[in-house]
Design a protein around this nucleic acid. Structure first.
Lengths: 211, 211
DNA sequence: TGGGCCATAGGGCGTACGACCTATTTGCTA
DNA sequence: TAGCAAATAGGTCGTACGCCCTATGGCCCA
C-alpha cells in the first residue's frame, strides 16, 4: 500500500483526487492540505511515501513547501500551467516527477508507483516505458489470482445481483456453477460470504458504475 | 437522482470530481467531456439535469459551448480564476451558478441541487441561505428513514463484518436484534439480503474508509 | 501425452439467513 | 398523559447458502 499526501488549494480537485486514488487498490491517501504550511506539517506528522503537490498555493507555494522539507519522500509536482521554468524549479527543489493536471488517472497512478519505487521521471527520455512498467503491476494479493469468470461474478455482486438464481441467469450457467465460483472466490480472497465478497468487489473496482 | 454532465480539460479533476459526485447518493455523473465540442454532443445526447462547465477548454470554451446549447439545462460554471469579467460572461451565456474550484464538495453538491431545483445562484445576495437549504435536504428515498442503529449496522457490513454473531458482538446486542435491524433495513432500502445491503452501504458512504 | 487449470455441473449436509409475529422498555412529543 | 417510534429480544419455519466431494470437457504447455 503506497501512502500518499496531497497538497492543492482547489478543494474540488483535492476531494475528488482523494476519492479517485483511494479507489485504486494499492494506493491510499493519508492526508490532504490546502496550503503549503499545512502540507509541511502533514508530511512531517504522517510520513507518507509519495507527495502530490500543486505549485500554485497560498502561504507557501508547492515548490517552497518542498524545499522546506528535509528528507522529503518522492515528490510529484502537478500544475495547471506546464511552463518550462516551472519544471526546472520543481526539479531544483527535488521533485522526481512533473505532471500536468490533464494527466489521466491511470498515468498518475503509474507515476505514483514509479516514484514510490524510487524512479525519477523528470528528464527521463523513456518516460512511457517507465509508466508502462508500473501500470497496475499487481492488483491485490489474491485478486490477481481471480479468473475472468470470477471477476465477472464479483461485478454482478457489486451491482446488487446477489441471489444464486439471478447470478446464474445473468451468466448463463447453472446455480451449481455459481456456487462453485463463489467458493473459489471465498478461498482466494480469504472471505466467507456474499456480503464480504460484495465489499471486496467494490474495493477492487470490479463494479461498472457507468452502464 | 440528479443527472450531471461535466466539462473540463483537466482530466485529474474530471475523473476525481466524477468519483466524488457519484459517491453522493442523490447525484449521478452521466458523462464527462474534455473539450467544448465533445461536451455539446454529450449534453444533446444524454439530456442531463445540470451542467458543470469549466471556462478554460480547448476547441470551444465553456462559455461558447453554453451559448451553443439551445434549451440548455441549468448550468454551473467553474473556473480557476474568478475574475469579474468571467462571471459576467458566464451570466450572459445563461449560467445560473458561478463557482471557484476552491469550492468544497458539500457546497458544490448543494449548488447542484439548487440549480436542479431551478434556483439562480448568480447575483443572489442570500447565497448562503440557498445553499443551506439544499445541503443534503434528502438522502436517498429510503436512506433518510434509516435510524442511527441501522446506519451503524450498515457501516459494519460495509467494512466486512457480515456474520450475525460478529455484528451482534460489535454492537453489543443479541443476534435476534441484529436480524430485526436487518429486516428493517431490507424493507426501507427495498433490498433482500446482506450482500445487497453491503453494496448500498458503500454507495451511501456509510463505511469509514479512513480508520 | 500427460499434467494442470479453468469452466462447467451434480449430490448431500448442516446451518445461517430471511420472513412473519409478538412483546418489553425507553424516550419524545403532541 | 396518551401515543408513537426506536431499540431491544424471543419464537417458528422454510429455504437459500456455504462446505465438501466427485466428475467431465477444453485448453495450454512442458
Amino acid at each position: 500500500m503506497i501512502r500518499i499526501a496531497i497538497a492543492d488549494d482547489h478543494y474540488l480537485l483535492l476531494g475528488g483526487l482523494k476519492e479517485a486514488l483511494n479507489a485504486v487498490p494499492d494506493l491510499e491517501v493519508i492526508g490532504t492540505a490546502g496550503d503549503g504550511e499545512e502540507f509541511v506539517a502533514l508530511v512531517e506528522t504522517h510520513g507518507p511515501d509519495v507527495l502530490l503537490i500543486d505549485i500554485e498555493m497560498p502561504k507557501l507555494t508547492g515548490i517552497q513547501a518542498l524545499r522546506k522539507l528535509k528528507n522529503a519522500p518522492a515528490a510529484i509536482v502537478m500544475t495547471m500551467h506546464t511552463g518550462d521554468d516551472n519544471l526546472k524549479r520543481a526539479e531544483a527543489a527535488g521533485a522526481v516527477g512533473f505532471l500536468s493536471k490533464e494527466t489521466r488517472l491511470p498515468d498518475l497512478a503509474a507515476a505514483i508507483r514509479a516514484a514510490a519505487a524510487g524512479e525519477t521521471l523528470i528528464g527521463a527520455e523513456n518516460l512511457d516505458e517507465i509508466l508502462d512498467r508500473h501500470r497496475q503491476p499487481v492488483l491485490d494479493a489474491g485478486a490477481s489470482a481471480l479468473t475472468a469468470r470470477e471477476r465477472e461474478l464479483l461485478g454482478l455482486l457489486a451491482s446488487g445481483i446477489s441471489a444464486t438464481d439471478e447470478i446464474a441467469d445473468a451468466m448463463f450457467i447453472s446455480q451449481k456453477t455459481v456456487k462453485n465460483h463463489l467458493a473459489s472466490i471465498y478461498e482466494k480472497l480469504a472471505i466467507a460470504d456474499r456480503a464480504q465478497a460484495a465489499v471486496e468487489a467494490i474495493r477492487l473496482g470490479l463494479h461498472r458504475r457507468d452502464t
